[in-house]
């Protein structure tokens, strides 16, 4: 960090009306009553129930074709069949491995690149065009290329997952590194804190909420990356099961796999938010349960 005092990079903090998100007067009661806490646990199942109700209605009353929309009971049956299949474990395992490996790579590389670019302004400006270009390109279009390069195995899917997850993490970390409060910096400078102490006690805690904000998006993107990769090649994973069910015109199984994917995605997301709650319990986003 630029702790150089020799230059007039210094600007004052007083009279600066910019509100500080994390330090603002938060009404402690907001969103914290037991009722508010429990609300999602009540509304979630209710909405699920409503969905299944409408679904069943569409099938039995409106008479939508079994192939377009299988009955809920049929999907549940297909789910049972899926789990009876001894191969299901390996399919889930492969997809999970691809998602987690891709997410892990994105996390490490995203934090490293984001922190570097956030600290070195000229470098950030220099690579800006490349970043923008990469960002606007629909990245799933790369999957066939990765298949050519890395084959039909998990590698191409891992890379796809990592590529999709990389951007939200990198961009958030870049922002986070720059978001160190000027007043906080004055405190550390006034205390003559070492570079390491400044990092440990100020820069890292400032950036962590941004890392988690990126990670929450990234974990969802990794699932998308892995599934799209599996759609296009290979013979393993839940994405492959979706495609094979489609080819077999087995609608109940197709729906069952999608339900599985939804559950998997939700569990992964919950894992990230739970980690966040443990690591940064002090942060506003944790308190208000966002």
């Amino acid at each position: 960090m630029t702790t150089s005092l020799d230059r007039d990079t210094d600007t004052r903090t007083d009279g600066d009306p910019a509100p500080r998100a994390v330090d603002a007067d938060a009404t402690p009661a907001e969103g914290e009553s037991p009722w508010m806490r429990r609300l999602p646990w009540v509304s979630g199942p209710l909405m699920l129930l409503a969905l299944v109700g409408v679904w069943q209605f569409a099938v039995s009353v409106v008479g939508v074709s079994e192939f377009i929309l299988p009955a809920p009971a049929a999907v549940v049956g297909a789910l049972g069949d899926l789990f009876a299949d001894p191969e299901i474990g390996s399919h889930i395992g492969i997809t999970l491995l691809e998602v987690l490996a891709g997410f892990g790579i994105a996390l490490v590389v995203g934090i490293a690149v984001g922190a570097t670019l956030g600290r070195i302004a000229w470098l950030q400006r220099a690579v800006q065009p490349a970043l923008v270009a990469l960002q606007v390109v629909p990245k799933v279009a790369f999957v066939p290329i990765f298949v050519i390069w890395f084959g039909f195995g998990p590698t191409s899917k891992i890379i796809m997952a990592a590529l999709l997850a990389f951007f939200p993490i990198m961009l958030n970390v870049m922002l986070g590194v720059r978001s160190v409060d000027r007043g906080h910096r004055d405190v550390m400078r006034g205390l003559g804190a070492s570079k390491w102490a400044t990092f440990r006690d100020m820069e890292l805690p400032t950036t962590l909420p941004y890392v988690f904000a990126g990670a929450e998006v990234a974990i969802v993107f990794s699932v998308i990356g892995a599934i799209v990769g599996e759609y296009l090649g290979g013979s393993q994973g839940l994405g492959y099961l979706v495609v094979s069910s489609l080819n077999a015109l087995d609608a109940p199984r197709l729906f069952a796999v999608i339900v599985l994917l939804a559950v998997l995605g939700s569990l992964l997301y919950v894992a990230v938010t739970t980690t966040k709650k443990l690591v940064i319990p002090w942060h506003d986003s944790v308190r208000t349960g966002v």
Binding site: D23, H184, D186, D201, P205, W282
Partner: peptide
Amino acid sequence: FQEANLFPWF
């Protein structure tokens, strides 16, 4: 300082 500048994570 004019603002307390406490660290919200502590």
